[in-house]
Each structure stands twice: as C-alpha cells, then as structure tokens.
C-alpha cells in the first residue's frame, strides 16, 4: 500500500515480476550466463546507486527476499508473477510456474500467478496448458516470442500454431496475454520482437487482452500506432519506468506519448522485479509531474487519478480484482500471520 502525503491509500498491483533462479548450479551454458549478466547490466545502469544489489543476490534472491522487497519494504499490495522458461539456457528453467507457485503459497492473496505457453510445443503443449490452467487457475500467460528452442530463434503470434494456443487460452478463461516486446536479448534479426503481430491477433481475438510488456521499446512509435487502433491492447511500463530516475526527460517523453496514444486506462505499472525493486519506482512515479510545456504541447496530463489507474486499478480490472474486498482479505491474512 502506498499512502500519499494527504493520507490517501493507493492500491498497487505490480504487473510484472519474476522469481528467477540464475544461480551457478542452474546455468546450463554460456547463453544462460550472458542472459543474467545482461539483466544485471540493466539493473546497474538504471537503478539508483543505493539500490544496486551484489551480483550473487541478483542471480538468485529467493522467495523470502522477494516477499520482503515487494510487500514489506515495497509498496506492492499485489503482484503478477510471470514465467520465463528459457530451458535451453537453464537446467531447471529460469523462472517456471512451479518455482513461482512457491511464492503464491507464501502470499496467496497477494500473488496473481500467470502461466506461459510456447506454440512450438505442438499438441503436447496444448495439453500442458490445459493442465496448468486446471492446477493453478491462471487468468494470464506471459509469452516470450524470442525464446530459443532448439534451432528456432523465436516465433510470431500469427503462426498457425500460435492461433491454436490463443484459441485454447480463450476457451480456458486465460484472457490476459502478456507479450514481451522489448529491448535486447535479441535473436538474429529483430523480427521476433517486432510488434506487428500483435496487431493481427488483437483484431482476431477480441475476447483477449494483449499487454505489451515494455511497450515495444525501442519501437515505441510502431507500438503506439497499433495500440491506438486496437481496444484490447495495453502497455506494460516495465523497463520504461526506471528511466524516471536516470533519464527523467526521456521518461517524460515516453509517458506523454503513451498517455496521448493509449491513454491512462491502458497502461500498467510493472517493476520487472528482480531487475528493479518497486519501492523507489513507485515513490518516484508518485512524485513525478509532467512539465507544463509538455502538458500543453501534447494535451495530456498525469493526474493522481491517472497514476492510481496505472499503479493498480487497470490491472485490477483485467484480473477481476475487487480492490476493496482484496484489501480486506490481505489485511485479514496479514493479521492472522501476526497473531500466529
């Protein structure tokens, strides 16, 4: 919970978090090593200096640390926990649903557990998705279209098999499709992170919501064009938001463009934990004001109401969370723990 100076409570749903394991004994090959090293690069480059972790902690922080950083030291009320399998790089996967379920058990009222699928898994993957949905009652999945699989360096959402998976997801009530469309960890050519495929699937699957994580950065212009045409396309602010600290002018530019093209109802806060921790992100975001000249030039504003939507209410809508009821649930389960 974040409280404004005037005492108003802001309900925070962190739309993009991970509980990964990149410890040495889980790394399969040099790609796995380089992958986590690159993440650490992001962490050190954009975090405030006093928020930089030692590398060992970054490699594998574990469930307790995550609970502490999000819900005790951090302002998150809830967090959406995403999967990233990367089984070609990590022996037991980087960030699997089984691993994430540990966190769900630790904080059942606070964690929204998401699944994942990969259309290259064919029929067997469809069955696995069904089993995952039954076991974990997921309402969302995270897709990583650039993931390596054997010789394949990625897929597109418009592939025939991807359509079958999306149809299946829709049938199973998995209505929130988070798609990583962001920077680096790039395959041979950048097509696998191209945002154009979102345009097609968003039109063809009106019952699904597509949350484009990282807003397609660095292809913000392409993403804005697509998002403005599709009512069911959302922007996830993970990776864009940390620029608020190191490059404020740049963040101003990005957020004002997003407000102009998508609007305040279509943006979701995400810390991308453990790359960044939510506390400083939320504090800086709450303190952030658009400069007057930007407000005038672009005709947008980042009001308190807009911030509330971005920080939690939009995600609550997508995941059918009744904020008041959820607050009570969380308060009740926290006090039980204290009593115990």
């Amino acid at each position: 919970m974040y409280r404004t100076k005037s005492g108003e409570e802001i309900f925070i749903i962190d739309g993009h978090t991970h509980n990964w394991n990149a410890a040495k004994d889980n790394i399969k090959n040099i790609h796995g090593q380089q992958f986590i090293d690159c993440f650490y690069g992001y962490h050190t480059v954009l975090s405030p200096k006093d928020q930089v972790w030692p590398k060992e902690k970054f490699d594998h922080y574990g469930t307790e640390q995550m609970y502490q950083d999000l819900f005790v030291d951090g302002p998150d009320d809830m967090a959406i926990l995403q999967c990233t399998y990367l089984t070609d790089f990590y022996k037991n996967g980087f960030n699997t649903i089984e691993q994430n379920a540990e966190m769900k058990n630790r904080a059942p009222d606070r964690i929204i557990l998401n699944g994942a699928f990969d259309p290259r898994d064919g029929e067997a993957g469809l069955d696995a998705l069904e089993a995952m949905a039954a076991k974990y009652k997921i309402k969302g999945v995270k897709l990583y279209t650039a993931e390596w699989r054997g010789d394949s360096r990625g897929y597109k959402l418009t592939d025939p098999w991807a359509y079958r998976y999306l149809e299946k997801a829709q049938k199973l009530g998995i209505k929130n499709i988070h798609v990583h469309k962001g920077p680096t960890i790039i395959p041979l050519d950048r097509d696998a992170f191209d945002v154009a495929d979102i345009d097609h699937v968003a039109t063809d699957f009106q019952g699904l919501n597509f949350i484009v994580e990282h807003c397609g950065l660095p292809r913000l212009d392409d993403f804005c064009w697509i998002a403005v045409q599709e009512t069911n396309v959302y922007g996830g602010l993970a990776v864009a938001l940390p620029f608020i600290h190191a490059r404020r002018d740049y963040f101003t530019n990005v957020i004002s463009e997003l407000l102009f093209w998508l609007g305040e109802d279509k943006l979701l806060f995400g810390s991308d934990y453990g790359i960044w921790t939510p506390r400083w992100l939320v504090e800086q975001f709450m303190a952030f004001e658009l400069p007057d000249e930007v407000k005038q030039a672009k005709g947008v504003d980042l009001t308190l109401q807009a911030k509330k939507k971005i920080l939690g209410l939009n995600a609550a809508r997508l995941y059918d969370i009744d904020v008041d009821a959820q607050k009570q649930k969380i308060a009740a389960s926290s006090s039980e723990k204290v009593a115990a």
């Binding site: 690159c38 690069g41 992001y42 480059v45 920077p183 292809r219 212009d221 190191a246 740049y250 463009e257």
Partner: peptide, 25 residues
C-alpha cells in the same frame, strides 16, 4: 515534427542503454 520525435525517442532509448550496458559489461 512530433511524428519525427517518436523516431528520436526510440533511438535515445537504445543510446542510453547501449552506453550504460557497455560500461557495465
């Protein structure tokens, strides 16, 4: 000019990250 500005936003994103990542790496 505003439309051109979005091309610049993209490049700036990469520029900022690339420099930082190189130094970090």
């Amino acid at each position: 000019l505003q439309a051109l500005g979005r091309v610049t936003i993209n490049a700036e994103f990469n520029g900022a990250l690339c420099r930082g990542l190189l130094a970090a790496r």
